[in-house]
Write a protein that binds this DNA or RNA. Sequence first.
DNA 1: ATGGCCTTGGTACAAGGA
Length: 255
Amino acid sequence: MKLATWNVNSLGVRLPQLLDWLSLHQPDVLVLQETKLTDDKFPQADIAAAGWHSVWHGQKTYNGVALLSRSPATALVKNIPGFDDPQARVIAASVGDLRVIGAYFPNGQAPDSEKFVYKMAWLDALHEWLRRELAEHPRLVLMGDYNIAPEDRDVFDPVAMAGQIHCTDQERAHFQALLDLGLVDAFRLFDQAPRIWSWWDYRNLAFRKNQGLRIDHILVSQGLRDQVTACVVDKPTRKNERPSDHAPVLVEIKG
DNA sequence: ATGGCCTTGGTACAAGGA
């Protein structure tokens, strides 16, 4: 099973790149973030013609998530149950014997902002929900754009970024709290070269200089840990014409 | 360097992203 996550930064703009990517990588499951489409605009027909089922949860202009799968998704959940949220950030479903959660974590803007307060409340709600989901679904994958760089080695300039958004102790404590539930960062199950990122700013020639952050993650439950055979960032896709600022992240799970 | 880019909405430029 090949699963992947990709923040496409507008599916309206990136649909041709998505269809190319599906054809090239043939994932069993792909979750998307920042589709930026209302539900009536979701390109279900194009994706179905390419050979994937899809479920989606969108809104106008901002946010928006989707889950594409080779076999149909069931037991669909949109957003965090019990957390009243006008922002479309979460989609969860069962695909085969896997529980898959795709999430677009809040950015948070700056540690002293109202948006950071929202990010913290959202992370609290996610944590409590995940505790329940894991009890119900031992084979679970949580993947998406976390907007958190878990460690200094996930940041191109950790000195300059110290205490800044994505790198605060509070955000990192929330990431650790997810690990403490029994989730494992699939990327760190393997030897990885240094300076691998999943996002590069459009500005500053950041991609050319490889100045980025690793903020897109795939966490797997303990029940899946021993079946994970690979986890990589698809950097070449960030070089394509008219790219998203994020690269996809992929995981391979045995069986 | 308090920035540089890209996207949306809407048709000028502000807001959001990270």
